[in-house]
Design a protein around this nucleic acid. Structure first.
Length: 809
DNA sequence: GCGGCGCTTATACC
DNA sequence: ACCGGTATAAGCGCCGC
């Protein structure tokens, strides 16, 4: 029989000792379909150069006799055949070794340690990835599948055993999404119980609870017990039959919580289409997988794909929903949990439902991104929503190697990883030493995707790298580290990256002509992939790790930017700043600037391209806050600009740092605005004086003096007990669970006795106490504005009242 | 008890 | 452990006096 099919979820399984893959997706009518397909279980044995035909045949025979026994499974080599392949861009003779079960590939490969064998490869690729690589049944593409109906015990409309796969291209697909969210009595599932579970889908909203029945809210369903509630949750999910079950932080909280509570209630959480429970796996952070339904933790995808371009200071559902949807969480006062009245419960149900609603809306909003990631990288939705960018880069390469007839490199293991991690840092970007001051009429140039374009233009990668000086090779001077050499024959890494950049350009152009969320998402996915490629080269866990290549990228980028600075200087411009891929200089004629840009571009190698970032009306650079008063220099990575439309761009200043209090951030931002907009430092000074006065009169609102700092590790692991660690300890004493990554909020209070350390004055927001005038004046307010005003020769310390001056007796 | 300096820590820039 | 290096700055930790 023949059907049309779009793959959504993949899972491998064994049958009669052999590997199979089960793919869940939809057909053109929206029916849920299951495919079962076999897997070619094989790996590669790369032979040393110059072996005779008979020698190779002898090795094949030896390999064909290998047997491996594992508990409950026997694997043997089923057949071998010899191919001309490429490895690291070079032609090799390689034996393709087919075995009974791919899980034993490593063990079989270990036995092939003959002297004629150079390398063994492709035994360490996840089965589903390998399946997609070989059969090209890629996620979210449409296929015409021919196959026989297969008996199954899955909750699907049809199951086929695959005979033929034919790609019939891309078509739009809107997945059925169901969002869920739980509220619990305690953070730890071991001590708590689930109070309610909300579900939100298209024309679908429910809150399941066993706590209090509401007659006012038609979406609330009340059950006798937690057990019954969980059972109904499973039933409802199955009835809704979503393609995607989405939560926010659900890998870390909701799904494991429900699993633990199901166990405590001695019931099965059989959410899977195979009626099995979710499984939790994959490394450092657990991932909850449900068979046949793609469980997506929106938080994790946002973290890798969105966070670097987001303004939000945290990735909480509240902040993220606010930024991406313009909708916030509902308010609920958790302190009243112990003494809830009916209205409080109704409020709580609303709150819980709204979280699912936000999660659902976020899922709909970011679906184009998830979908484009999955299609471009060719990994399942489950994986691309959880993998980091290094895995994404690597998987994208793996899925493109076949075109180069290339055998994949192995993944590094313990010793190799340790070796790589022990390597010293190589020299990175160039940052120009700015001279403090206020500047007018500034141009910013920047290189478009500089590091990626350096990789492509100079062909830098593992497969093109050589330690030795060879003919026709590019030599890169790495200073103290010696020299690196790179072939001029294009390597697959550069070619793949160049394609990424090209495709990005193409869809960005298309997007500008005819905007659509899909095109934007596609362009963004290519951009992220390109931007992560350089980091990938220097990442210790990478298959195609190449430290000399990464160091060469940085070295050539430095050379490029320094040469360009020279060119701009030679044209008579004063260069005032530069960081990595951008150059700022003063101008008086835009036409001349553009002509110079054109001229520079004509001489740049390969795909390297210098772009006009913008013209700015005014900009300010400040001094570094050095302790020794001897040599004062300008601060790098700290400046503010205003463009011709009056839009400010603030970099590095306290204003953009979330670990400074709002008082300081707002004041500094206003000071910068007055100075850049009006060039009026006297007015700015007046504002500062006013603020100081208000501060001294204790008229500053409490929320403006709160300091928020992230806890980046468990409290016990801090070697230095800083104020935010004390705040964390105080929270813990109060019974608030301390989670890595959480922001702790505190303020610095007055103390009865004179205390030397800041941490001795730390108080939580709800603790009684006045803010410490001396601290907020001398450690917060003054430091944030003194170097800005100093540019105008104004010494704020002289302005501030003598009694509160820093260290003045 | 205090000054100085190195270290730890968080966060930003690109 | 889950992309790289460069940079600022605060506040502790600890030494010496």
């Amino acid at each position: 029989m023949k059907i049309e099919f779009i793959p959504l979820d993949y899972e491998s399984f064994d049958f009669n000792d052999k590997n199979f893959v089960r793919i869940i997706g939809r057909n053109e009518k929206g029916k849920r379909i299951c495919l079962v397909d076999s897997i070619d279980a094989y790996f590669w044995v790369i032979l040393k150069e110059g072996l005779s035909k008979s020698k190779i045949e002898e090795i094949q025979k030896k390999i064909e006799n290998i047997r491996v026994e594992k508990p409950g499974r026997k694997t043997h080599v089923e057949k071998t055949s010899v191919f001309n392949k490429n490895y690291m861009g070079k032609e090799v003779k390689a034996i393709k070794v087919f075995i009974t079960n791919y899980k034993d590939a490593h063990d079989v490969a270990d036995k092939i340690d003959y002297s004629e064998v150079d390398k063994r490869r492709a035994y360490d690729i996840p089965i589903v990835t390998k399946y997609i690589m070989d059969k090209k049944l890629c996620p979210l593409n449409w296929y015409e599948i021919e196959g026989e109906i297969e008996a199954n015990d899955l909750d699907v409309d049809l199951c086929l055993r695959v005979d033929k796969i034919k790609n019939i291209g891309m078509r739009e697909f809107t997945p059925k999404i169901l969002a869920y969210d739980i509220e619990a009595s305690e953070f730890e599932a071991e001590n708590g119980e689930i109070l309610m579970i909300s579900l939100y889908g298209t024309d679908y909203k429910k809150v399941l609870t066993w706590k209090r029945c509401s007659k006012k809210q038609d979406f609330v369903e009340c059950f006798k017990s937690e057990e019954e509630m969980i059972e109904k949750f499973v039933k409802y999910v199955k009835e809704y039959s979503p393609d995607l079950l989405v939560g926010y932080f659900s890998d870390g909280f909701d799904l494991p919580y429900i699993k633990i509570r199901a166990e405590a209630n001695k019931i099965k959480l059989n959410l899977g289409l195979d009626n099995k429970q979710p499984s939790f796996s994959r490394g450092r952070i657990v991932s909850g997988k449900i068979a046949g339904i793609v469980h997506v933790d929106i938080y994790r995808f946002i973290e890798t794909a969105y966070s670097q371009y987001m303004q939000s200071e945290t990735l909480s559902l509240d902040d993220v929903a606010n930024e991406l949807l313009g909708n916030k969480k509902k308010k609920f006062d958790f302190s009243k949990l112990g003494k809830m009245k009916e209205d409080d419960w109704n409020e709580f149900f609303e709150y819980n439902l709204h979280d699912s609603y936000l999660t659902f809306s976020l899922a709909e909003k970011i679906w184009p991104d998830i979908s484009e990631f999955s299609k471009i990288i060719q990994e399942p939705i489950f994986d691309v929503t959880r993998d980091g960018m290094s895995s994404n880069v690597e998987n994208h390469i793996l899925h493109n190697l076949e075109r180069f007839n290339e055998i994949p490199e192995k993944r590094p293991i313990h010793d190799e990883i340790e070796k790589r991690r022990a390597m010293p840092k190589y020299e990175g970007a160039f940052v120009f030493q700015p001279i403090p001051g206020i500047y007018e009429n500034i141009t910013f140039f920047d290189f478009t995707s500089m590091y990626s374009s350096v990789i492509v233009s100079y062909n830098l990668s593992l497969s093109t790298y050589s330690t030795e000086k060879e003919k026709e090779f590019l030599e890169v001077d790495l200073g103290k580290e010696g020299k690196a050499h790179f072939s001029k024959n294009k390597g697959f890494f550069s070619i793949i990256l160049e394609e990424i950049i090209e495709k990005r350009k193409k869809c960005k152009k298309e997007y500008n002509e005819k905007p659509s969320p899909i095109l934007k998402a596609r362009s963004n996915a290519y951009k992220l992939l390109a931007n992560a490629s350089y980091g990938y080269l220097g990442f210790f866990g990478a298959r195609y790790y190449c430290r000399p290549a990464a160091a060469s990228v940085a070295a050539l980028a430095r050379k490029s930017i320094i040469d360009t600075i020279e060119k701009i200087k030679n044209k008579g411009h004063r260069v005032i700043y530069s960081d990595t891929d951008s150059i700022a200089f003063l101008y008086d004629d835009k036409k001349e600037v553009l002509a110079m840009l054109k001229d520079i571009n004509e001489r740049l190698p390969g795909i390297m391209e210098l772009d006009l970032e913008d013209f700015y009306k005014r900009g300010i650079f400040v001094l570094k806050k050095t302790k020794d008063k001897g040599e004062q220099t300008g601060a790098k990575k700290k400046y503010a600009l205003i463009d011709e439309k009056g839009k400010m761009k603030i970099k590095g200043f306290e204003t953009v740092r979330r670990d400074w209090c709002t008082l300081v951030r707002e004041l500094q931002s206003k000071v910068l605005e007055i100075i850049l907009m009006e060039g009026n430092e006297k007015k700015a000074l007046e504002l500062v004086k006013e603020s100081i006065k208000k501060l001294k009169e204790r008229k500053i609102e409490k929320e403006k003096i709160m300091i928020r700092t992230q806890l980046k590790k468990p409290l016990s692991e801090y070697k230095s007990i800083t104020p935010h660690v004390i705040a964390g300890q105080k929270l813990k004493e109060k019974g608030v669970p301390i989670k890595i990554g959480m922001l702790v909020e505190y303020f610095i209070s007055e103390t009865r006795e004179r205390k030397a350390l800041v941490r001795e004055k730390v108080k939580l927001p709800d603790e009684k106490g006045e803010y410490n005038i001396d601290y907020y004046l001398n450690n917060q307010l003054i430091p944030s504005v003194e170097n800005i005003l100093d540019v105008f020769g104004v010494k704020i310390q002289d302005v501030a009242d003598g009694s509160s001056q820093k260290k003045l007796f």
